[in-house]
């Protein structure tokens, strides 16, 4: 009987109990509260358009999460990759294209994923209309990237530049391209710029 009072039993049982409860609870919760990619997309759409927008199947050009093989391979460029491309509120020739772009070589080799909305008229890309942050991986200094970093992409004065081949860059010395630096988080800003550069490459790039 003394075994149950001994320190051995009490320590092991206590740790075991807490470990089991926390492990079990976490697994069950992580399965229950799993945010599916579709839900993430609809949230992003809600943020861009103010209300969740249904995207019909034929309007999906690329979607890495979709099981349709022809559409599930992302378009990669040396700035990163475009994981999702949707056509939204299509009426005739003019429509919006919404990209989920992932910019590479951020801080510690991490990446930043942005949603970029580009307005098209008679099948020609007109301007980058909105940029919002989706998620970042290993970018510990994200707090330094404020709202004006994202709005800078949508300003009119840069529209002409990226239309004729210029891309966004973080380092001051590169005057050929459009400057969009952030002090204190240069690597993360670099990844952000690369994400938008993917979209520019796709819309106004060589192809």
């Amino acid at each position: 009987m003394s075994f149950f009072k001994s320190i051995w039993f009490r320590c092991i049982s206590c740790l075991l109990a807490i470990a089991l409860i926390s492990g079990g609870l976490l697994t069950i919760l992580s399965n229950l509260l799993y945010v599916s990619p579709e839900e993430r997309t609809s949230r992003a759409m809600a943020k861009i358009y103010g209300a969740p927008v249904e995207v019909s199947a034929e309007n999906i050009i690329v979607d890495i999460d979709s099981d349709d093989a022809s559409k599930s391979s992302p378009i990669t460029s040396n700035y990163g990759e475009l994981q999702k491309i949707y056509k939204v509120n299509v009426n005739g020739e003019s429509f919006d294209m919404v990209f989920q772009a992932q910019g590479n070589n951020g801080y510690k080799g991490g990446t930043i994923t942005l949603w970029v909305k580009v307005v098209f008229e008679n099948n020609l890309p007109i301007k980058i209309d909105k940029v919002i942050l989706q998620s970042s991986d290993k970018q510990t200094l994200m707090s330094k990237i404020g709202g004006d970093f994202y709005n800078r992409f949508t300003l009119d004065d840069v529209t002409e530049d990226y239309k004729n081949g210029k891309v966004f860059t973080g380092n001051q010395k590169d005057t050929a391209n459009i400057l969009n630096p952030v002090s204190g988080a240069t690597y993360s800003a670099n990844a952000g710029n690369n994400a938008v550069n993917c979209v520019i490459d796709y819309c106004w790039g060589t192809n």
């Binding site: 470990a19 926390s22 492990g23 976490l26 697994t27 992580s30």
Partner: peptide, 12 residues
């Protein structure tokens, strides 16, 4: 494939 458990196990 249970990487999410990583933080808990490491800290323990």
């Amino acid at each position: 494939g249970i990487e999410f458990l990583e933080i808990i196990v490491f800290i323990f």
